[in-house]
């Protein structure tokens, strides 16, 4: 228990450091002192008031980097915790938010928004399209798996795969008739990114992600029981279907909102819970908070590094998470294999 406290403390410090880095790094380098002073002065706190912060730095912090960082924290945390919940629901550490059709559903929503030209009307057309598509896909997946008032895990997994494939084909079909500009717009969306995030995106994601995360945290003890399977959970008096459905909806909500405000970002929902399980163990009462914090820190770190790794260019966060996530995942696989041998 004490070890866990230290881990949470370390994750919290990481989060803070990464947050400061994210506000400081980029095309315009802002010194750490100015970041701190800029934040304090913007919030009218009675500290660091005497440190002069140039107006352009102030504008970059408050209008560009702060909303961007907060969107990253929200999306990363949402993907991290819902990845952990989904791996628990499926009792499978290879499950990720894509497995119940969230990503492919969001893609269909986005493709339709772009194809119909609605994307040009308002900046919220894409996120809303993604959200609606993702939730509809999850609904379809669950409806297909629903049999005699039960949702068997294996059927859910299979229907998720099938729905995913079908929707991917649907997206592909629409894409083949799109012109080059629209195709590029779609391509940009599929590689999730945090550029041009505004306070509106923060407002859009704040409620659903924080709300569903809070409820998932409260239900972590129930998730521990659910993981052991239908019979085991029923034997200790759990209303299995109700909780499985509730957790599915919450995880989908958090994932879909994350995708909605940041685009499709892979690996966070898969790798972060996996990594945390190795560090804090499989007990969801510890795993969920750890995955939430680590997911947020990981995504913002990837975004910050992506801004400075290649000067003059910005490597989108969806690419960075895969670049950092893939080698780590391979390492995990190999290590796991060695233990099995």
């Amino acid at each position: 228990m004490r070890r866990y406290g230290i881990i949470v403390l370390v994750l919290g410090i990481c989060l803070l450091v990464v947050g400061v880095l994210s506000l400081s790094w980029g095309q315009m380098k802002i010194p750490f002192l100015h970041v701190a002073a800029g934040l304090a002065q913007g919030m009218e706190l009675p500290i660091l008031a005497q440190v002069p912060v140039p107006a352009d730095e102030m504008a970059v912090i408050w209008h560009i980097r702060l909303p961007r960082t907060i969107v990253g924290l929200l999306a990363g945390g949402g993907l991290g915790i819902s990845g952990a919940v989904l791996q628990g629901i499926f009792a499978n550490q290879l499950a990720d938010p894509g497995i119940i059709g969230v990503s492919s559903g969001a893609s269909v929503g986005v493709v339709l928004v772009i194809a119909t030209g609605a994307a040009g009307i308002t900046m919220f057309a894409l996120p809303v399209g993604a959200l609606v598509g993702a939730l509809a896909a999850v609904g379809l997946t669950v409806a297909m798996a629903w049999r005699h008032g039960r949702i068997p895990v294996m059927t859910l997994l299979l229907s998720g795969v099938v729905v995913g494939m079908f929707l991917a084909a649907f997206s592909a079909a629409v894409l083949t008739i799109l012109d080059v500009n629209k195709l590029q717009e779609y391509l940009f969306w599929t590689i999730g990114g945090l550029d041009y995030r505004r306070w509106e995106h923060v407002l859009l994601g704040l409620g659903p992600i924080l709300g569903s995360s809070a409820v998932m945290l409260v239900l972590s003890r129930q998730l521990n029981v659910l993981v052991l399977g239908d019979n085991e959970a029923k034997a200790v008096g759990m209303a299995v279907k109700r909780y499985r459905l509730l957790l599915l909806v919450l995880a989908s909500m958090a994932t879909a909102t994350s995708v909605c405000i940041s685009g499709n970002i892979g690996f966070v929902g898969l790798v972060v819970p996996h990594m945390m399980r190795l560090i804090v163990g499989p007990d969801h009462r510890r795993l969920l908070p750890a995955s939430l914090l680590a997911g947020a820190a990981f995504l913002v770190l990837c975004d910050a590094v992506g801004r400075v790794i290649w000067s003059g260019y910005e490597v989108r966060v969806g690419i960075m998470t895969a670049f950092i996530g893939t080698p780590y995942f391979l390492y995990l696989l190999r290590k796991h294999q060695q233990r099995l041998d």
């Binding site: 009792a91 499978n92 993981v227 052991l228 085991e232 399980r277 163990g281 499989p282 007990d283």
Partner: peptide, 11 residues
């Protein structure tokens, strides 16, 4: 139950 399986490294 018969032959209970525990997923993950639960203590």
């Amino acid at each position: 139950q018969q032959q209970m399986q525990v997923p993950f490294a639960y203590t």
